[in-house]
Structure formats: structure tokens, C-alpha cells
Amino acid sequence: MLAQARDRLPPPGALPGGLVFQPKFDGYRALLFTPSPALGSMILHSRRGAFIQGRFPDLGQAAGKLPDGLVLDGELVAWDGEQLSFEALQRRAASSGRTAVRLAEELPAHFIAFDVLQAGSQELLREPYARRRQKLEGLFSEHGLIAPWTLCPETSDVRTAQEWLASWTQVPGLEGLVIRGRDQRYLPGVRGWYKIRRRNTTEGIVGAITGTLPRPQSLLMGRYDQDGALHLVARSTQLPPESARRVAGRLTAARPGHPWEGLRFTTSWASRTPLDVVLVEPALVAEIDVDTAQDRGAWRHQVRFIRLREDMAPQDVAAFGEGAMPAAG
């Protein structure tokens, strides 16, 4: 079951049975299957359809504490020192063999369970979420489950959820809320939940565009590091027509020696599909609306263009690697 993005908390009656709020973790969505008569060992199944249990041997070893015939829905996260790290999770997910074993010690993984789809070989998809949650909490208490198994926190109190959205998302690895209905059944593939990412405003230097100079479609933005190199940090969603007209009137074609000459761009984060861009003089500063999901200083999701900052020069923009400022209100 999937979630559809929203900008704000929905009204109380938006989902069946009232709203339940959970933190949205910045990890890998996965289904976990424990052994059953038809299954010889634990299986981790990613949202994209890959079997990834071999990359997480620490979870495989800990699976002996789980009962057989269990199917959990949850989020894989990885720890680097004392904080969650998406980069560490990427390294874990790309590892195998001895490397996977070594990284399991250096960058331990946790499985944060937020739903149970089968227990004791009994399918629970048609049960309302409140009953599935009761089963999930009982599973943790009856079996004394501790790390790497984690029960996802939840609340039905709107004020608590608002506090989570405001304060918890300041912690690396937490990026917002997932909202579901207390009486909802589990509908695989259906976007029946809501998700809200905490958003911030910040600035980037426009270094390239898609489209053409007279008709820009999206912006590619960068920030300078301490050595003067311009790093790509964000790509915007498609510009609204009025914004595209305003930006077009300020763009200047790149002169020789542009910092991004010869670089290859792709259509999205983690994609290999090439993206055709037009380099422009890195003289404009754009204010953008971003979420908290960053990887090595760059925002993984497309950002929203707000406006050009006529009052700022490129040297006024935060240095590469510095975070965004919380949005007002």
C-alpha cells in the first residue's frame, strides 16, 4: 500500500475511522517474510521487487527471534555512529558477500515495522488497521523484540503529530509523517495513505536549465564549496508558465569555462537516463521549497521554485553542504 503526497494535515474525517500519524523515515521500504512451509528462510523484498536479504546479514541472524509465517511492512534504515544515514543505507544495499558482513558491523541496520500483513500464517489484509496495529504491538511485547527490530511510533493526537512534524524532522533520517485511517484495510498498490514531508526554504544558484533560454522548463541549481567549485544540489519541478516567463527574461547563455562544462546530467536521482540541459551563466539566485531528504549535500527529490532572489548574489548563497532554513510558520 502506498501514500499520496499532501502539503498539510488532512481533516479528521479524511480517512476511515479517524487519522493515525506515524513518523516518515528516510530509508528503503521493504516487506519482511519469515520462514513458513513454503519458505525456507527470511526474505526481504524491496518496493522495486528485488530480494535484498543477502545484503543485510545482521537482520538475517536476528530473524530467529521472529515467529514463523510472519509478513511485516516497514522501513529499512542504517546507523552511522549515532545517527541515521541514507548514504550508509545505500552502501549496505549495494554490498554482498564479505563486504555485506563487514558493513553489517560498521553500519548496523534496523527494520522499523509499521504494519503486519500476516501473522501465524493468517492473512490480515482485510482487517482494519487498528486490529493490525494491535497484532503488531502484541508481537513486539510477546516476543520481547529489541534492535534491530523497531516498532514504529504512532499517535492519533493532532497536536503531537504537528510537534513531530516540526521537531522530529530536524533529526537526520526523519522527513515527515505518514497518515492512515484507523479502519482502513491494506490495499496493495493503492495510494490510500497520505504523506507529508517537512519542507524548508533555501536558495540555489541557477547553473543550467531544461528546455530553451526563451522557454525554460526546469532549473538545475548549485552551490559553491570552499574551493570555489560549483556542485549540483537540486533540480526544480516544471516551472509554472508565469515563473518560466520571468526566469527567461533574466537568463544568460553560458560563456566558455562554465563550471559544469562536460558534466553529464540524469533525469532523476539514482537514474542513469541522460538529461539534456542548457548551461547558463551562474548569476541568478532562486529561492526554492525543499524537503529534508539529502544525499551528500544534494536534495534527492525535485524541489519547487518559489521566486528569483533579486536581492541576493551567488556569493550570498549558503556554501555547499549547509542545510536549509526552516520555513516560517
Score class of each variant (00 low, 15 high):
residue 5 A to V: 08
residue 11 P to N: 06
residue 12 P to M: 07
residue 14 A to C: 08
residue 19 L to T: 05
residue 22 Q to D: 08
residue 23 P to S: 01
residue 25 F to P: 07
residue 32 L to W: 01
residue 33 F to N: 07
residue 33 F to T: 01
residue 34 T to H: 00
residue 34 T to C: 01
residue 38 A to N: 12
residue 39 L to E: 08
residue 39 L to P: 06
residue 39 L to I: 12
residue 40 G to D: 13
residue 42 M to W: 01
residue 44 L to C: 07
residue 46 S to A: 11
residue 46 S to M: 10
residue 49 G to N: 06
residue 61 Q to S: 14
residue 64 G to T: 13
residue 65 K to M: 11
residue 72 L to W: 07
residue 77 V to H: 01
residue 81 G to D: 03
residue 86 F to N: 02
residue 86 F to I: 04
residue 87 E to L: 09
residue 91 R to Q: 15
residue 92 R to V: 02
residue 93 A to P: 03
residue 99 T to P: 04
residue 100 A to F: 00
residue 103 L to A: 04
residue 107 L to I: 10
residue 110 H to I: 01
residue 112 I to D: 02
residue 113 A to W: 01
residue 113 A to F: 02
residue 114 F to R: 00
residue 114 F to H: 15
residue 114 F to M: 05
residue 120 G to S: 02
residue 126 R to V: 08
residue 128 P to T: 09
residue 130 A to Q: 13
residue 134 Q to R: 12
residue 134 Q to S: 13
residue 138 G to N: 14
residue 138 G to I: 00
residue 138 G to S: 13
residue 140 F to L: 02
residue 142 E to P: 02
residue 152 C to V: 06
residue 152 C to S: 15
residue 155 T to C: 10
residue 156 S to Y: 04
residue 158 V to T: 15
residue 159 R to S: 15
residue 167 S to C: 09
residue 168 W to M: 12
residue 170 Q to W: 05
residue 173 G to N: 04
residue 175 E to H: 04
residue 179 I to A: 05
residue 179 I to Y: 03
residue 183 D to S: 08
residue 184 Q to A: 04
residue 187 L to G: 04
residue 190 V to Y: 14
residue 200 N to C: 12
residue 201 T to I: 09
residue 204 G to C: 05
residue 210 T to H: 01
residue 213 L to I: 15
residue 219 L to V: 07
residue 219 L to D: 00
residue 222 G to N: 01
residue 224 Y to G: 01
residue 225 D to S: 05
residue 226 Q to D: 14
residue 228 G to I: 03
residue 235 R to E: 13
residue 241 P to Y: 08
residue 242 E to S: 14
residue 254 A to G: 08
residue 254 A to H: 05
residue 263 L to F: 11
residue 267 T to D: 05
residue 269 W to K: 06
residue 270 A to Q: 15
residue 279 L to D: 00
residue 281 E to G: 10
residue 294 Q to R: 15
residue 294 Q to D: 02
residue 295 D to S: 15
residue 300 R to E: 03
residue 301 H to T: 09
residue 303 V to Y: 07
residue 310 E to F: 10
residue 315 Q to D: 14
residue 318 A to T: 06
residue 322 E to G: 08
residue 324 A to Q: 03
residue 328 A to S: 11
residue 329 G to K: 00
